[in-house]
Design a protein around this nucleic acid. Structure first.
Lengths: 134, 134
DNA sequence: AATACCATCACGGCGCGTCATGGTTT
DNA sequence: AAAACCATGACGCGCCGTGATGGTAT
């Protein structure tokens, strides 16, 4: 059981962000001390880490919550076939969405890189006198 | 001279966004019709396109405004050496910042891709029966 | 005299940053 | 009894989405 500060530091998140994820229903700490300090299990921390990895994909909070819930539900063994199939389908959709987002990220990166190159070129253009390397 | 709707559609921006960029002092349309319709020159549109390319790099509005101003100032030919040197230095800093951002974007993309792969793996894990392709 | 298109408010929401104030102690 | 650490609450901001209401006409 770990306090919020330790968790936040380990994950590179701010306290505010971790608390916000709780507000949003993404990761509710599994325990509290008698004095109301949040206590996170390793599993809680895993969830937070997952969220951090998801973030660049641009999922909304709602989307993340659904996806997290999905993963949890799929680990519960007492499901009938129809339920399981439905969950699998949803998971597939999320996986597909994630893949699309990745491609979009890639495109953005390319454009950004092009822009950075442009800038670099302009730097050269406006400093024509220097010939050397840095 | 082009109206806002045409401009927005061509660039893939919303009207709101284009107006916001004006509010923020990034791109003020060069003209207005007598009835107050915004009119954008090709150069205005170029600026907007540039902003769109900059966006993934995570520059703040203020940063973008400064960078845009810098580029404009560098094209004015009547500068003494000191001024020109100062502008060049600033431009170099922006170029360096852009390069750093690109690297960070790349890292994010890698993490996101890792996540997407994880999801894809889970999809397979929970649908072990199917052997074929889609 | 109807059809697109546009203008200016103005409110709202996400994802936090940042105090302020006061309690807790893994 | 001080030093870290934490709690809740509230305001603000950037970047727009989304009406509402009414004027224009590239």
């Amino acid at each position: 059981m770990h306090q919020i500060g330790e968790v936040a530091q380990r994950l590179g998140l701010s306290l505010r962000t971790v608390r916000y994820y709780e507000e949003a229903g993404l990761v509710v700490p599994s325990g509290r001390t008698p004095g109301k300090f949040r206590l996170y299990t390793d599993e809680d921390i895993e969830r937070l880490a997952l969220i951090k990895r998801m973030k660049p994909l641009g999922f909304s909070i709602d989307g993340m919550r659904e996806l997290l819930a999905l993963r949890v539900q799929l680990t519960t063994p007492d499901l009938d076939d129809a339920q399981r199939a439905a969950l699998q389908l949803q998971l597939q959709e999320y996986a597909a969405a994630a893949a699309r987002r990745c491609e979009e990220l890639r495109r953005q990166l390319e454009r950004a890189q092009a822009f950075a190159d442009t800038l670099a070129a302009e730097v050269k253009k406006y400093t024509p006198s220097e010939t050397g390397s840095s």
